[in-house]
């Protein structure tokens, strides 16, 4: 028995020492990322007057640089493609913790998946993994059940993820290039699309909403209330008719605690030349949409 315990302890000590060699990967992996937006937030370098949050629709359709020029207020787009409202809530929480809260938050809502279950919008854990050297990120992973508090204190190997071992420099792709203002407009159309303008059935299933998403959405509203941020929900055109029931649902949830910008239909939003695919504007469409949004915001902020 003594031999067993002694060998076990020896092995544990060896492993503990070996584990510390991975500190290099923990510290260095963030440097190889090309999208630095979240790290800028963590470093307190995101002190802007207007912040845009959302998924790919927010990233593609709202050109923060154009808004800044028109409105004369510093603006940055923190929208992440394929991200869900829980991720947006995390971003906002992190933003106000490490930076001066923005004066205005433009939250781009996804019709109809803002609060509904979907596989296309998730909590973007892989954006967090390269940044595990930051305690705030590690704590978020612990809170989300991805990591264990005790193990991540004891072992670097538990704190990092397999993706941290990839130290190759990351590059932007044509579909996901982040501009200096944080926006990600796309200058071309997705190949192989059969453009078909779909009509809405006008049904929005409130009963199917995910409670965690509703909770995250309400938390965003609360953070804005508590920190004095003016919240404006933004709807973005799709190459299909928008659902009025969804818009009504958003209005009901935000109530008096914010406002909602509902884009106005025009011939452009019925023309596929202004879209990347059925759900996303391309840069031509984004410029026009941003212009319209700026006109609306002039009176509001």
């Amino acid at each position: 028995m003594k031999r067993f315990i002694a060998n076990l302890l020896l092995f544990a000590i060896l492993f503990f020492i070996y584990d510390k060699a991975f500190i290099f990967f923990k510290e260095y992996s963030a440097d190889k990322e090309i999208d630095k937006r979240l790290e800028l937030v963590l470093q307190g370098k995101m002190n802007k007057e207007i912040i845009v949050l959302g998924s790919s629709r927010g990233a593609n359709a709202v050109i923060a640089g154009d808004l800044q020029k028109i409105l004369g207020k510093s603006t940055y787009n923190l929208s992440y493609p394929a991200s869900d409202v829980e991720f947006h809530e995390f971003l906002l929480r992190t933003l106000v913790k490490f930076n001066k809260p923005p004066k205005t938050l433009l939250l781009v809502v996804d019709d109809p998946f803002q609060l509904l279950p979907t596989n296309t919008q998730v909590f973007r854990y892989e954006r967090l993994y390269p940044l595990v050297k930051y305690d705030h990120i590690n704590q978020e992973l612990i809170d989300k059940g991805q990591k264990n508090a005790l193990l991540s204190k004891l072992f670097v190997l538990h704190r990092i993820n397999k993706t941290n071992l990839n130290l190759r420099q990351k590059y932007f792709t044509p579909e996901a290039t982040v501009l200096a203002c944080g926006s990600m407009p796309i200058s071309f159309q997705k190949s192989g699309r059969k453009w078909f303008y779909e009509k809405t059935d006008g049904v929005y299933p409130i009963a199917d909403e995910t409670s965690a998403k509703v909770e995250a959405f309400n938390k965003i509203i609360s953070i804005c209330e508590n920190t004095g941020i003016k919240l404006i929900l933004i709807t973005v055109p799709n190459f299909r008719e928008s659902n009025p029931s969804f818009v009504e649902r958003m209005k009901t949830l935000v109530n008096e605690r914010g406002s909602l910008y509902e884009f106005k239909y025009n011939s452009i939003y019925l023309d596929s030349n202004y879209f990347y695919d059925e759900s996303h504007l391309n840069n031509k469409g984004a410029e026009i949409f941003t212009d319209e949004l700026a006109t609306y915001l002039k009176d509001k902020i």
Partner: peptide, 9 residues
Amino acid sequence: TAIFLFSSQ
């Protein structure tokens, strides 16, 4: 090491 690196939820 592989067990640690691949472990998540």
